[in-house]
């Protein structure tokens, strides 16, 4: 076993997902299959290999100039929000 149910539950919490018992069972087994398949990477010697960077060419320094452009109106910004009141998005109270 690469990963047990408790760990799957922890990962689910980090991912903000929840599963029923049966689904949890299935996911744990499927994740194990996939992670076992990943084992084969340990056969590759990567001691002297740099991790691939995101860009395919040796590219760097993509900048924009510090110039202000018009924003959306708050109405446009909030149009898609399931619960917006006035100028703000409303969420269940965040405890601080």
């Amino acid at each position: 076993m690469k990963i047990g149910k408790a760990e799957v539950a922890h990962i689910a919490n980090l991912s903000r997902l929840e599963f029923g018992d049966a689904e949890m069972e299935l996911f744990t087994s499927q994740l194990n299959d996939i992670l076992l398949y990943m084992e084969k990477l340990s056969a590759v010697d990567t001691a002297s290999v740099m991790p691939a960077t995101t860009q395919e060419m040796a590219r760097h320094n993509a900048f924009r100039e510090d110039v202000v452009a018009p924003s959306l109106s708050s109405e446009e910004a909030l149009r898609n929000a399931p619960d917006a009141t006035g100028d703000c998005i409303r969420v269940p109270k965040v405890v601080e």
């Binding site: 900048f63 924009r64 510090d66 202000v68 452009a69 959306l72 708050s74 909030l78 006035g86 998005i89």
Partner: peptide, 29 residues
């Protein structure tokens, strides 16, 4: 390119990029 000015009315200095809308991308100032 949204303004950084303090004190504007809520959510009036926002755009798809800083609202985290799907498919948008950051470009460094």
């Amino acid at each position: 390119s949204c303004s950084t000015t303090f004190g504007a009315s809520p959510n009036s200095h926002t755009c798809p990029v800083c609202l985290g809308m799907p498919g948008v991308l950051p470009v460094l100032n």
